[in-house]
Design a protein around this nucleic acid. Structure first.
Length: 134
RNA sequence: CCAGACGGCCGGAUGACCGCGGGCUGCGCGAGCGGCUCGAGGAAAGUCCGGGCUCCACGGAAAGACGGUGCCGGAUAACGUCCGGCGGGGGCGACCCCAGGGAAAGUGCCACAGAGAGCAGACCGCCAGGCCGUCCGGGCGACCGGCGGCGGGCAAGGGUGAAAGGGUGCGGCAAGAGCGCACCGCGCGCCCGGUAACGGGCGUGGCAGGGCAAACCCCACCGGGAGCAAGAUCAAAUAGGGAUGGCACGCCGGGUCGACCGGCCCGGCAGGGCGCCUUUCCGGCCCCGCCAUCCGGGUAGAUCGCGCGAGGCGUCCGGCAACGGGCGUCCCAGAGGAAUGGUCAUCCCCCGGCCCUGGCCGGGGACAGAACCCGGCUUACAGGCCGUCUGGCGUA
RNA sequence: GCUGCCGUAGCUCAGGGGUAGAGCAUUCCCUUGGUAAGGGAAAGGUCGGUGGUUCAAUUCCACUCGGCAGCA
């Protein structure tokens, strides 16, 4: 079943995702992730946010880079996305020139790496309770 | 045909699959799933001007300060924009360029060079006559000629400079000089044409008034301020304000708000807690009001503002034109971390390579993305189309 | 959206109409047994770009490119 996708639109959401320090740089983009707050779970299963800074280029270049990321993320995230998670995808200078299939590969690999880190973070408190690290 | 000038326009096309935002609509209790339809630009850009709109300020206005504009007439809601003229400059020409008011209101600046740079000046020079000379030549001599000096006249020529107090020519003179004359330039007066800027003519002056106002300034005209994050409505959590009700509800000392009233702060004793440690007593810590309901302001957030307009297209009329008017017709983006996309195929251009004059392969397709809306300006832009005109060559 | 400031030597900055300068850095020489410091000398500039005003522009004016900052 295809998960319901939502969009991050508030500045506070972006700051919260950036604050978790879970980020993964890939050739075509930078990926950030954070667990979704409970209040938003009724709205969507996965929420996405996109960022393109002025470093990428002028308005046309920034729009195109963001649209390519949106399209690639839409195609990849259906299978590879972790439920109840917010993702922020940041455009890089290379996002424009990157081959589209390679861009999809970047996102898929980035999702796996980030997902693993989120799982460890979710397990960590219970592990710490039982056997404290010396 | 070549070279050029001006004006206008386009700025990839078609299709397939998967998607996005708005509107209308069908089904569903709902999350949602369908259908139809619309969905970036000539500059959407820079933010350099002008308006609409909204709020704030203000008794009407005017002046000053500050900022802007600056030949004349017109267009326009308005403009620093546009159109038509005028003047100046450039080009063989079509045509292009010009912040183009005032320098006899005042102040200031004009380095270096140069004699002299602002009510100018005489370095080299030019000049008739005067005086002087232990100078030279001639003469018997008075003296004559030359040279030098002093005093004097001049501003033609040389030289400096971006600029040297009209220019060219002729006359004139010792040499010269608007000293005189002609033409040109300039100032003033009158007449004529033009709405005007200005142009033309006649007369006159005899050259006075160097340049810089994108130096200060003067004159004329214009400008209240802010901006859709304007502004309006709804309105969490937390803190705080007010009202009502319930429970609880003490006093002393000091300071302070000038005093009273009413509070606030500090300290002490007593009391309470619908607080905690610990279920009770004891003890300790914490608080001195707590609880409920309602009201108002207001942050995050949400909604409106938000697209029928100085609107687009066609046509006719007025006007040289900018533009105005009539008629017909169309409805044409509306997001909000921000939709208008991704992938692919064919065609069209451009570049490179290979075979060779037609294909194959590879690469590329300009500048650039609405954010309240209009009118301009400026800047960026691969390639291409249309029209008018100019110069040259060729043909008839 | 509105507003302001800055681009000058490799770096940090002066200069506001008349010849482009200072400090550090670079190169050479002196000094030292050698280095540092010190002293002397040299080289280094489209004054961010394009036009205009002026006899003359880094300076004045207009447009433009890049960078920085502020306010709501």
């Amino acid at each position: 079943m295809r998960p319901r996708l939502g969009r991050l639109r508030q500045r506070a959401d972006f700051l919260r995702v950036a604050g978790t320090r879970v980020r993964q740089a890939m050739p075509g983009l930078v990926l950030q992730a954070a667990p979704m707050p409970d209040a938003a779970k009724a709205e969507a299963e996965i929420r996405l946010g996109f960022t393109a800074s002025r470093k990428v280029g002028n308005a046309v270049a920034r729009n195109r880079a963001r649209r390519r990321l949106k399209e690639a993320a839409r195609l990849v995230l259906a299978e590879a996305g972790r439920p109840d998670t917010d993702y922020v995808l940041i455009c890089r200078e290379a996002t424009l020139a990157r081959d589209f299939e390679e861009l999809k590969g970047d996102i898929a690999l980035g999702l796996r790496k980030v997902g693993a880190r989120l799982e460890r973070a979710a397990d960590a408190p219970r592990t710490a309770d039982r056997e404290p690290t010396s």
